[in-house]
Amino acid sequence: MKYQILVIEDDPIFTFLLEKGIKASDIKGNITTFTNGLPAITYLKKEYIKENNYVIFLDLNMPVMNGWKFMEHFETLANSSNCIVFILSSSGNKLDIENLIESPLVADFILKPINETIFKRITKTIVSKFGE
Protein backbone atom coordinates (compact mmCIF):
# COMPACT_ATOMS: atom_id res chain seq x y z
CA MET A 1 0.00 0.00 0.00
CA LYS A 2 1.35 3.33 -0.85
CA TYR A 3 1.26 6.31 1.43
CA GLN A 4 2.64 9.79 1.60
CA ILE A 5 4.72 10.89 4.58
CA LEU A 6 4.32 14.42 5.85
CA VAL A 7 6.79 15.76 8.45
CA ILE A 8 5.67 18.99 10.10
CA GLU A 9 8.52 20.19 12.28
CA ASP A 10 10.10 23.60 12.77
CA ASP A 11 13.36 22.31 14.23
CA PRO A 12 15.82 21.39 11.38
CA ILE A 13 17.80 19.10 13.68
CA PHE A 14 14.74 17.05 14.46
CA THR A 15 13.73 17.06 10.82
CA PHE A 16 17.18 15.82 9.92
CA LEU A 17 17.07 13.13 12.57
CA LEU A 18 13.56 12.08 11.58
CA GLU A 19 14.42 11.76 7.89
CA LYS A 20 17.44 9.71 8.79
CA GLY A 21 15.36 7.49 11.01
CA ILE A 22 12.54 7.01 8.43
CA LYS A 23 15.03 6.11 5.73
CA ALA A 24 16.76 3.65 8.04
CA SER A 25 13.46 1.98 8.89
CA ASP A 26 11.02 -0.06 6.83
CA ILE A 27 8.71 2.89 6.32
CA LYS A 28 8.38 3.44 2.64
CA GLY A 29 6.92 6.53 1.12
CA ASN A 30 7.76 9.98 -0.17
CA ILE A 31 8.61 12.45 2.59
CA THR A 32 7.38 16.00 2.41
CA THR A 33 8.53 18.38 5.14
CA PHE A 34 6.87 21.55 6.48
CA THR A 35 8.33 23.97 9.00
CA ASN A 36 4.92 24.64 10.69
CA GLY A 37 1.21 23.79 10.42
CA LEU A 38 0.19 26.55 8.04
CA PRO A 39 2.11 25.41 4.91
CA ALA A 40 1.15 21.88 5.75
CA ILE A 41 -2.56 22.56 5.96
CA THR A 42 -2.39 24.80 2.90
CA TYR A 43 -0.77 21.94 1.05
CA LEU A 44 -3.26 19.38 2.27
CA LYS A 45 -6.27 21.57 1.46
CA LYS A 46 -5.00 21.67 -2.05
CA GLU A 47 -3.62 18.13 -2.47
CA TYR A 48 -5.64 15.91 -0.13
CA ILE A 49 -7.58 13.19 -1.88
CA LYS A 50 -9.47 10.37 -0.35
CA GLU A 51 -7.73 7.78 -2.46
CA ASN A 52 -4.33 8.57 -0.94
CA ASN A 53 -3.03 7.44 2.40
CA TYR A 54 -1.26 9.95 4.63
CA VAL A 55 1.20 9.37 7.46
CA ILE A 56 1.81 12.62 9.32
CA PHE A 57 4.51 13.34 11.94
CA LEU A 58 3.34 16.44 13.72
CA ASP A 59 5.36 18.56 16.12
CA LEU A 60 3.24 20.56 18.55
CA ASN A 61 5.27 23.55 19.46
CA MET A 62 5.84 25.52 16.27
CA PRO A 63 5.66 29.16 15.24
CA VAL A 64 2.87 30.52 12.97
CA MET A 65 0.62 27.51 13.35
CA ASN A 66 1.30 25.01 16.05
CA GLY A 67 0.29 21.35 16.11
CA TRP A 68 -2.99 21.86 17.90
CA LYS A 69 -4.24 24.47 15.46
CA PHE A 70 -3.21 22.28 12.61
CA MET A 71 -5.21 19.41 14.04
CA GLU A 72 -8.29 21.58 14.36
CA HIS A 73 -8.12 22.38 10.68
CA PHE A 74 -7.03 19.00 9.58
CA GLU A 75 -9.90 17.25 11.42
CA THR A 76 -12.34 19.20 9.26
CA LEU A 77 -11.07 17.71 6.03
CA ALA A 78 -9.38 14.44 6.90
CA ASN A 79 -10.80 11.03 7.41
CA SER A 80 -9.42 8.52 9.89
CA SER A 81 -9.59 5.77 7.30
CA ASN A 82 -6.78 7.10 5.18
CA CYS A 83 -4.87 9.31 7.64
CA ILE A 84 -2.66 8.49 10.58
CA VAL A 85 -1.05 11.13 12.80
CA PHE A 86 1.91 10.67 15.15
CA ILE A 87 2.23 13.53 17.61
CA LEU A 88 5.78 14.50 18.38
CA SER A 89 6.67 16.34 21.52
CA SER A 90 9.88 17.21 23.22
CA SER A 91 8.22 17.73 26.62
CA GLY A 92 6.52 15.01 28.66
CA ASN A 93 3.85 17.56 29.59
CA LYS A 94 0.41 15.97 29.76
CA LEU A 95 -1.30 19.19 28.90
CA ASP A 96 0.08 18.81 25.34
CA ILE A 97 -1.93 15.76 24.56
CA GLU A 98 -5.09 16.51 26.58
CA ASN A 99 -7.17 17.77 23.68
CA LEU A 100 -5.69 15.47 21.05
CA ILE A 101 -6.01 12.09 22.66
CA GLU A 102 -9.67 11.93 21.75
CA SER A 103 -9.07 12.45 18.07
CA PRO A 104 -9.51 9.31 15.93
CA LEU A 105 -6.77 10.56 13.62
CA VAL A 106 -4.08 10.43 16.27
CA ALA A 107 -2.37 7.03 16.43
CA ASP A 108 0.40 7.64 18.96
CA PHE A 109 2.33 10.18 21.01
CA ILE A 110 6.05 10.12 20.62
CA LEU A 111 8.46 11.70 23.05
CA LYS A 112 11.53 13.03 21.26
CA PRO A 113 14.16 11.87 20.52
CA ILE A 114 12.94 8.94 18.42
CA ASN A 115 15.13 5.92 18.74
CA GLU A 116 15.13 2.66 16.91
CA THR A 117 12.65 0.98 19.21
CA ILE A 118 10.20 3.77 18.70
CA PHE A 119 10.55 3.54 14.93
CA LYS A 120 9.80 -0.15 15.07
CA ARG A 121 6.58 0.65 17.04
CA ILE A 122 5.66 3.33 14.51
CA THR A 123 6.32 0.99 11.60
CA LYS A 124 4.14 -1.66 13.16
CA THR A 125 1.32 0.82 13.60
CA ILE A 126 1.52 2.00 10.01
CA VAL A 127 1.70 -1.52 8.61
CA SER A 128 -1.29 -2.62 10.65
CA LYS A 129 -3.19 0.37 9.30
CA PHE A 130 -2.20 0.42 5.70
CA GLY A 131 -0.45 -2.96 5.15
CA GLU A 132 3.09 -3.75 3.81
Binding site: D11, I13, F14, L17, K20, A24, L60, N61, S89, S90, S91, G92, N93, L95, D96, L111, K112, P113, I114, N115, E116
Partner: peptide, 28 residues
Protein backbone atom coordinates in the same frame (compact mmCIF):
# COMPACT_ATOMS: atom_id res chain seq x y z
CA UNK B 1 0.87 26.60 32.60
CA UNK B 2 2.59 28.59 29.93
CA UNK B 3 5.67 28.69 32.05
CA UNK B 4 5.54 25.01 32.67
CA UNK B 5 4.85 24.35 29.02
CA UNK B 6 7.52 26.62 27.80
CA UNK B 7 9.91 25.08 30.21
CA UNK B 8 9.02 21.59 29.19
CA UNK B 9 9.35 22.36 25.47
CA UNK B 10 12.06 24.91 25.35
CA UNK B 11 14.22 23.21 27.92
CA UNK B 12 13.76 19.72 26.70
CA UNK B 13 13.92 20.40 22.96
CA UNK B 14 17.70 20.95 22.83
CA UNK B 15 18.23 18.01 25.20
CA UNK B 16 16.14 15.78 22.99
CA UNK B 17 18.03 16.97 19.96
CA UNK B 18 21.32 16.14 21.63
CA UNK B 19 20.10 12.72 22.54
CA UNK B 20 18.90 12.09 18.99
CA UNK B 21 22.19 13.20 17.55
CA UNK B 22 24.12 11.09 20.01
CA UNK B 23 22.00 8.07 19.10
CA UNK B 24 22.68 8.65 15.42
CA UNK B 25 26.38 9.00 15.95
CA UNK B 26 26.53 5.87 18.10
CA UNK B 27 24.49 3.75 15.70
CA UNK B 28 25.89 4.94 12.42
Amino acid sequence: KEIAWTQSHIVRAPVARLMGLINLIRDK
